[in-house]
């Protein structure tokens, strides 16, 4: 196994830098989805720093692990991380939502190196990831498929078609992280659609399930280890997160699911995230 290891503090620092880029991107574009990008980024920073087998200088390497950002609107998080990891440049981040830019509004495999699926329409990534996992097994490859789902997203019925099919096909190489930030476009999930016992649902579908605090880095790293080591069935790491994490006025605030900060708010965010210059 290609093992890229990083210390807890290094991953935390990576996530902090990504948060700054996320807010900058959304502020520049005056559009986009900061809330879900800030909730997912600790998880993605840890995954890319510890377990995911990818090559920034060879993004199409056939035997890479796949990473599917199913909640494809939370693209600033993805782009920030891809820039930090060297798949794209920091200059590329300026192309977010700009005509002709590789950083399309929603992540797109045809536009951006390091993006494995063109997402943006919710509920599609798990099925796609399942196809990647099946292909890997058919080829006899050890590569895995990781899928990042949003919690609002799992209200899409086809997610459960995939959840059922993945255990039927015993896809131990399919690994999901659920960003359980409790907020969706219009409001809190509780108001839009009560989902009751989410871990029980996945367990009932035959998945290995673990719950963590999605902002506690040692817990996250431990959770990713759980995904790495659970290969008898598909596995899901349910990460309890805070939407907008790291920017006080965005935290747990449905208004910042899909809204950009104004100039004043931007300065506050930069201060809180410790941006220099």
């Amino acid at each position: 196994m290609v093992s890229i290891t990083a210390s807890i503090s290094e991953i935390e620092e990576l996530a902090r830098r990504c948060r700054i880029e996320i807010v900058k991107m959304v502020h520049r574009a005056q559009a986009g989805h900061p809330g879900g990008s800030l909730s997912e980024i600790d998880l993605m920073a840890a995954l890319y720093s510890t377990s995911l087998r990818v090559r920034p200088d060879d993004p199409d390497w056939e035997d890479r692990d796949r990473f599917v950002l199913s909640k494809g609107h939370a693209s600033p998080g993805m782009y920030a991380l891809l820039a930090e990891k060297g798949f794209i440049s920091h200059d590329d981040l300026h192309s977010y939502r700009v005509l002709g830019g590789i950083c399309q509004g929603h992540v797109d495999m045809k536009w951006c190196p390091g993006v494995d699926f063109s997402a943006g329409s919710l509920g599609m990534g798990l099925s796609f990831g399942m196809g990647c996992a099946l292909a890997a097994r058919l080829e006899g490859s050890e590569r895995r498929a990781f899928v990042m789902l949003g919690d609002g997203e799992i209200q899409e019925g086809s997610v459960w078609e995939a959840a059922m099919a993945a255990t039927h096909h015993e896809l131990g190489n399919l690994k999901v992280i659920l960003d359980r930030n409790r907020i969706q476009n219009d409001d809190f999930c509780l108001e839009q659609m009560r989902m009751f016992d989410i871990p029980a649902k996945w367990k009932a579908f035959g998945w290995n399930v673990m719950e963590i605090d999605g902002h506690d880095m040692p817990e996250i790293v431990n959770g990713i280890k759980f995904l790495d080591e659970s290969n008898d069935a598909p596995s899901i790491l349910i990460a309890h997160t805070v939407k907008g994490k790291g920017v006080s006025y965005m935290e747990d605030n449905p208004s910042f699911h899909g809204a950009a900060p104004n100039d004043e708010q931007f300065e506050i965010a930069m201060n809180e995230l410790g941006a220099v210059g």
Partner: peptide, 14 residues
């Protein structure tokens, strides 16, 4: 719905 996207994932993998 799942079938078409599983197929897409497999197509992306060759």
């Amino acid at each position: 719905q799942n079938m078409l996207l599983v197929a897409a994932g497999m197509a992306s993998s060759g």
